[in-house]
């Protein structure tokens, strides 16, 4: 931090205001011609990096089943009580699976605790930030909306393995 200038320290040119004002005007004129950073949203979409916490999704294996074993840790850790899981048995190797897995997207605060606590890498935060609903019941996302093929969330899983 440079020393703060008091009025008595100012030179005559600075006290005259005008040279300083001209300097300021020059700066703004220069920045008028700088490139703009704006992305024009509906036409140009922002593609977030892997560290981005968008809508939480359930990882769907190549075989078409979800990874989730319905342990209920995510619903337990969720600070806004957005997740509801109902477990059931299955003949697959993992033995348990969620019959019902619902996230209330009006409650979700995108904290990422669910993915942090998940022992199976079964729930991860995606890059999806376009969440629109017409009414409250539409905002409750069931398994049909939550399941996302593993290919689409690979870089997030990679990111979690490196940094979690």
């Amino acid at each position: 931090m440079p020393e703060k200038k008091r009025e008595k320290d100012l030179t005559i040119a600075e006290k005259l205001y005008i040279p300083e004002i001209v300097k300021g005007l020059g700066l703004t004129l220069k920045s008028m011609f700088r490139p703009k950073f704006t992305m024009e949203y509906p036409e140009v979409k922002f593609i977030p990096p892997a560290s981005y916490r968008g809508r939480p999704v359930l990882v769907q294996e190549e075989s078409g089943t979800e990874r989730c074993v319905a342990c209920g840790l995510c619903s337990r850790v969720c600070p806004s009580l957005a997740i509801e899981v109902q477990a059931s048995e299955t003949s697959l190797e993992k033995e348990r699976y969620p019959v019902k897995f619902e996230i209330n997207m009006l409650r979700c605060i995108f904290c990422g605790f669910c993915e942090e606590v998940c022992p199976e890498e079964a729930i991860v935060m995606s890059k999806d930030y376009e969440l629109v609903f017409r009414d409250r019941s539409e905002a409750i996302y069931g398994k049909d909306k939550l399941m996302v093929p593993i290919r689409q969330v690979e870089d997030r899983i990679e990111f979690l393995r490196n940094f979690k």
Partner: peptide, 13 residues
């Protein structure tokens, strides 16, 4: 528009 340009924005478009 000019305020937008000065602030590196695009302004109404």
């Amino acid at each position: 528009k000019i305020s937008a340009w000065i602030q590196n924005r695009r302004g109404p478009n």
